[in-house]
Design a protein around this nucleic acid. Structure first.
Lengths: 226, 226
DNA sequence: TAGATTGTTAATCGATTAACAATC
DNA sequence: TAGATTGTTAATCGATTAACAATC
């Protein structure tokens, strides 16, 4: 309930080699670094070699001074007059976020949304691999979605254990969401990404993130209308 | 580039009737109010009549004092010892955000993601109505998705004008995103909700919001791993 | 060199929180 | 009444920003 005590950024920052800096990032810094990473990943794909803090600012809506400040807390990654090397910055931020590796995720729901997620690169680009897709509709079990065959939800526990899965993505109708969240919790998943609108009740050791496009839109609209 | 000057919350707050308070909300307040609204909307659906700031805190991860503070800036909406009336609070926040009305949106892309969006209530619950679905694949034009028949992208400009559309939702593959964003801009849309990973370049009067589930996951994972 | 952009300082402002009286 | 929860104060902390020297 109270993370975020440690001061932002300014960690002694071990040698570039990859020191495990012990301080936990503040919520704000971690969130912003994640956003920079998304833009950088995409910029890299587009063949961009360097990027300035101003360009990053244009895409993330974070003030450019803030960006330079966030980054300079961990080392001198930029080149004055030039900007930041995209590829180098991607690996630096991955190192800082300690999410450089691959993470296996389970996808629940093989409907339109599940198929959209499975066939998109949105997770793969960030080191998340959908290793299994589940549905509770036996009619869908066995059909191919993306690179995976749909499995029945009864197999969930075993797969979570075998594949060391920490993250479950819920892409199911509202009325099914709580029940399937319970199954994810029982199976040992620690982070649930909820694409339904249901308010999910889970034990304290499990974190729920609810996707809320409509909320983002309301917010954007407010600033358009005023 | 620099909104957010006006002080948060504390507006004189006209009579509950619905005074147009002239101050613009700060970015933070507007974002949090939108999140409260989502939880309240769902709580209302589940038949909940009152809700405490602590319950709102559990679902939004916003500190309960912060919530009470945000709300009390606009009036005394709660009852001590009881909490907030869900239905009343929904309409108060809608009034504060001045998004009480209906807003028409155009959906671009009739693939899996487009279908998932069109058939979900996630936008409808917040007063957004998908009034048209477009695709550039003539094979899909005319097919039924949700309540709408798919139209060809060539009709976009006319529909945006006729239906007074401000928001366009892009649910298309990365490589098509920039081209279709250009079409949305040409047609007069002011807010683009981008479900692709592309970095979109648009003129300054248009706002892009990019959906980033992987970023949210990275962020959640950081706090799980540390 | 001239232009661009980083890294960093210092000042300001808003967000966050604990605590508690008020009151349902 | 007793318990719960709001509304509000006061203090602290982090985020934000402008400005500019350093330097590519």
């Amino acid at each position: 309930m109270s993370y975020g005590e440690p001061a932002a950024g300014a960690v002694e920052s071990g040698p570039p080699g990859g020191g495990a800096s012990s301080e936990r990032l503040s919520l704000g810094v971690a969130a912003r670094l994640s956003r920079y990473l998304q833009v950088l990943t995409q910029a890299k794909k587009m063949g961009k070699e360097t990027i300035s803090s101003q360009e990053l600012s244009d895409y993330t809506h974070v003030n450019s001074t803030q960006i330079r400040r966030d980054l300079s807390g961990f080392g001198k990654f930029g080149k004055r007059g030039v900007g930041y090397n995209v590829e180098a910055l991607v690996s630096q931020i991955r190192k800082i976020l300690r999410t450089a590796g691959q993470h296996n995720i389970a996808l629940i729901g093989a409907g339109h949304l599940g198929k959209a997620i499975a066939s998109s690169e949105i997770f793969a680009d960030h080191g998340f691999r959908v290793v299994a897709i589940f549905d509770n509709d036996r009619a869908k079990v066995g059909s191919q979605v993306g690179a995976q065959a749909v499995r029945h939800i009864a197999d969930l526990r075993q797969v979570v254990e075998d594949e060391d899965i920490v993250v479950g993505v819920l892409a199911v109708p509202n009325q099914a969401a709580q029940g399937l969240a319970d199954e994810l919790v029982d199976a040992g998943v620690k982070i649930i990404f909820n694409y339904s609108e249901s308010l999910l009740d889970v034990p304290p050791e499990v974190t729920v993130h609810t996707s809320s496009p409509a909320v983002d839109l309301l917010y954007a609209l407010y600033f358009y209308l005023t």
